[in-house]
Design a protein around this nucleic acid. Structure first.
Length: 824
DNA sequence: GGAGTTCGCATACC
DNA sequence: ACAGGTATGCGAACTCC
């Protein structure tokens, strides 16, 4: 079962190296040859023989190797759904495919060159079908050195690899790690301790002896070069930092892990360790080949370790998992609390300046906890990683780092051969800029609600609306046409770059819509399976297909996509608007009052009608919907509150509160759900909304408001209730406008607190003079009392004013009233 | 120097 | 750079007199 993939050159040729487990749970390595290739798409009138002859003569001389064309195949293929004549060109080395392709671009008869820009491992998996985390029978020979010595692991050079139909589940052997340092900046400070945590005995064949890996129970260690009396037995004292790093390498390599995991370890722990190793002159020999991690370039470097999949859980959670989380930040603490229910012990880092034995013991325990929590988090998220890896057919290493657009694209790439399709190329830098420069196109429709407290509502919503439209009308780059006809679907008339017009899509379904329809089908099927048999694996599978379906619309509008189509994306939205509007009209005509609608949902009053009437209406609407489009009953609601926009005229969109018939409250858009408002405001507003929805009037809510205002005036409110949290989304110097959080960040820096992009900056507004609010920004430790006036006028009032306005109650005097009196 | 307006920015909804 | 557009609303920074 291949888990990790990479490749190497030997005698100028490409080999793929897969490291995984054999049927006995032993770590093995399989090397397979790979014949690099790409496609040349010919013009219709091309002289095939002549082109082939010319291609065969191409030779690229590099410093270290000479790349030649090995052989060619002339084939009937498809490109963007259309039949083409193509030459498949096999070259000696994948790295030179691009150069060979460039060299033949000008030949007569050559239309396009494609697939030279697909990563080698992706090409290999696509062409040879040796997919991640599947079982295979390998026939081959034990290898001697192929330029890639791996100590202690059997290595085979494959002659033949065949898929096996067995359902033996793979339970990876996981080791979690975490480091603590005395300086956040990589390479600057010292690593004080390193913790590792795993469970032994669950599987795998570790090398016995050294650190008692094999057996049962926990494997936990905190390595440190600091001294401390009375430390628990898991603390292993080292001579110095260098010795500690060497011991860490030894532990990791001996543990025989499939996965080494950390939290933000791509961006912190691993590069920090590497830098510390370099500084200390320690060979950072992590991994089965002893070469240590390699870092690929990118926004965040990705640390790859041979034979052990290094997973930075933060990145996977950030890219694909976070949209299902309630957590307001993706800190290990918060995410673990939500997913694992674990409350991590905290450590006050200001203690670091003066550490006694007790402090060190707390510190080591804190360090170990981070590894324990990361380990547990991995257990929770692993089913999703596994499913994504199998569905998208990309290695675990990549799947845990790719964003959704890449997942969608990889799913497409790995399924193209079923359609005989040659893959489209990736846009080059210029093309991406051109795409971005075209600007936005019109999006979905949002209904302006009339402010009020409504009774008895129902909400309909379209299931996977964008995906179902793409499938139903075959909306994609390959089916797009400027002109219509009986073989074409017609888009609604819409504004496309300043011109009102219709565009068309072939009725004959292409691979894009076919693949998406399969994704939607599978999502339905696995959702059903999950409902019958609820477990982490069925849930993860159903979830992965849901995510792919939801991201596929965004993919077509994403400037970096191979199958980008501005027309397809814009038309999808035109269809979205049309069907939402049409449905609203039908509901209105049936005698109902529409209260709200956003994109794919419609809320309306039940009025005097029954539940049966509503269901009948839903059925009728569904009968009229085309293709796989489907309208669903979202829920019935006892009450719903909509408010006025602040200051301006009209009802506020994307802001409402509902209570269903079981008393469950749903709050959208209000300050309650925004993390950049202080807790006092958020809690107060949430309670006010709850009381109003439960009672149907504002009386109790008003009483509560008065009480909180009084408490605030009397300074009875704790500072932690008043802290405002705002994310620093760019380096301090890049801000044009210096908002309060930027002022706070600068203050932190001045106090020696490290500040970095992405951090949540916490501050409160204190008393003082100064024109700007920013001039009164205070940090948690500041000995300044909070500014009552600010919290009344800028926090509480704006959050409650428009709610009470619905009942004709002006709370301005309640909130500001006695302040005025005092002035007089 | 104050009032009014625009713009930058963060964060939400779907 | 790493799915899209729509929307609210604060506070700073501008314009204008």
């Amino acid at each position: 079962m291949p888990v990790d993939y990479d490749y190497f050159d030997f005698d100028g040729r490409n080999y793929v190296r897969m490291i995984g487990r054999d049927g006995d749970g032993k770590k093995v390595c399989v090397v397979d040859s790979y014949d690099a290739n790409f496609y040349v798409i010919l013009k219709r009138d091309a002289d095939v023989d002549k082109v082939v002859k010319k291609i065969k003569g191409v030779e690229i001389r590099q410093a270290s190797r000479v790349t030649k064309v090995l052989r060619t195949e002339v084939l009937n293929k498809k490109f963007l759904g259309k039949a083409v004549r193509a030459i498949r060109v096999f070259v000696t080395n994948h790295k030179d495919a691009h150069d060979v392709a460039s060299a033949i671009g000008d030949l007569d008869g050559v239309d396009k060159r494609r697939e030279y820009d697909i990563p080698l491992v992706t090409k290999y998996i696509k062409e040879k079908g040796v997919e991640p985390l599947g079982w295979y029978t390998v026939r081959g020979q034990r290898t001697e050195d192929r330029g890639q010595a791996i100590e202690g692991i059997d290595c085979y050079l494959a002659d033949e690899i065949e898929p096996l139909k067995i359902k033996k589940e793979f339970v990876p052997r996981i080791l979690a790690y975490d480091i603590e340092t005395d300086d956040r900046e990589i390479g600057k400070g010292e690593i004080l301790c390193i913790s590792v945590f795993g469970m032994s005995g669950c599987r795998g064949v570790g090398r016995r002896g050294k650190c008692g890996v094999v057996g049962s129970g926990e494997f936990k260690k905190v390595l440190t070069w600091k001294k401390c009396k009375g430390a628990p037995e898991y603390v292993e004292f080292c001579k110095d930092e260098a010795d500690m790093i060497e011991k860490f390498i030894e532990h990791v390599n001996d543990y025989d892990a499939d996965i080494l995991t950390g939290y933000f370890s791509d961006g912190f722990d691993l590069p920090y360790l590497k830098a510390a190793a370099d500084k200390n002159g320690v060979e950072f020999g992590l991994g089965v080949d002893g070469r240590g991690p390699s870092f690929t370039r990118g926004r965040i470097p990705s640390g790859k370790i041979a034979g052990i999949v290094h997973i930075d859980l933060y990145r996977f959670i950030d890219a694909v998992f976070s949209q299902y989380l309630q957590s307001e930040t993706l800190s290990l603490n918060e995410v673990a609390k939500e997913l694992v229910g674990e409350i991590k012990e905290d450590f006050d880092f200001s203690r670091l300046s003066d550490m006694r034995d007790l402090d060190w013991r707390d510190f080591f325990s804190y360090n170990l906890q981070d590894s324990v929590v990361t380990y547990k988090l991995m257990g929770k998220v692993w089913p999703d990683i596994l499913e994504f890896s199998r569905i998208v057919k990309e290695p675990v290493f990549d799947v845990t780092r790719d964003r959704m657009a890449t997942h969608v694209e990889n799913y497409i790439l790995h399924n193209l051969d079923r359609f005989g399709e040659i893959a489209e190329k990736r846009p080059v830098y210029n093309e991406m800029n051109e795409r971005k420069a075209k600007g936005k196109f019109e999006g979905a429709f949002v209904f302006e609600p009339k402010p009020g407290l409504y009774e008895n509502l129902v909400m309909f919503d379209f299931t996977s609306m964008h995906a179902s439209i793409i499938v139903s009308f075959n909306v994609s780059k390959l089916s797009f046409s400027e002109k219509g006809g009986k073989d074409f679907y017609e888009s609604p008339k819409f504004d496309l770059d300043g011109e009102k017009r219709k565009i068309y899509f072939e009725k004959k379904i292409g691979f894009f819509a076919t693949l998406l329809s399969e994704i939607v089908e599978k999502r339905k099927k696995y959702k059903g399976e999950y409902n019958k048999n609820k477990n982490a694996m069925t849930k993860a599978r159903s979830n992965a297909y849901k995510l792919l379906a939801n991201a596929s619309f965004g993919y077509q509008g994403f400037f970096g996509a191979r199958y980008y189509s501005r027309e397809a994306a814009a038309a999808t939205l035109a269809f979205v608007r049309k069907y939402t509007h049409d449905t609203i009209d039908i509901i209105k005509k049936a005698g109902y009052t529409i209260v709200y609608s956003d994109t794919d949902s419609i809320a309306f009053l039940i009025g005097g009608k029954t539940k049966g009437d509503i269901l009948k209406l839903l059925k009728k609407i569904n009968k009229g919907l085309p293709g796989i489009m489907e309208l669903d009953l979202e829920d019935f609601y006892r009450r719903g509150l909509f408010v006025l926009k602040r200051g301006g005229v009209g009802g506020a969109k994307k802001k409402y509160a509902l209570v269903d018939n079981k008393g469950k409250i749903k709050i959208r858009g209000f300050e309650t759900v925004r993390r950049d408002w202080c807790r006092l405001t958020r809690n107060l507003q949430s309670e006010i909304l709850t009381k109003i929805l439960e009672n149907g009037n504002e009386k109790a809510a008003l009483k509560l408001l008065k009480k909180v205002v009084e408490d605030l005036r009397k300074r009875k409110v704790g500072l932690d209730e008043l802290m405002i949290r705002t994310q620093l989304r760019r380096p301090i110097g890049e801000y044009v406008s210096e908002g309060p959080h930027v002022v706070a960040a600068k203050k932190m820096e001045a106090q020696g607190v490290p500040v970095s992009t992405g951090m949540l900056i916490e501050y409160f507004i204190g008393e003082g003079s100064g024109k700007r609010i920013g001039d009164r920004v205070c940090l948690a430790g500041d000995k300044v009392s909070y500014d009552i006036d600010y919290y009344l006028k800028n926090q509480i009032l704006p959050a409650v004013e428009n709610i009470f306005e619905v009942f004709g109650v002006d709370v301005k005097s309640v909130v500001e009233g006695s302040e005025q009196k005092r002035l007089f």
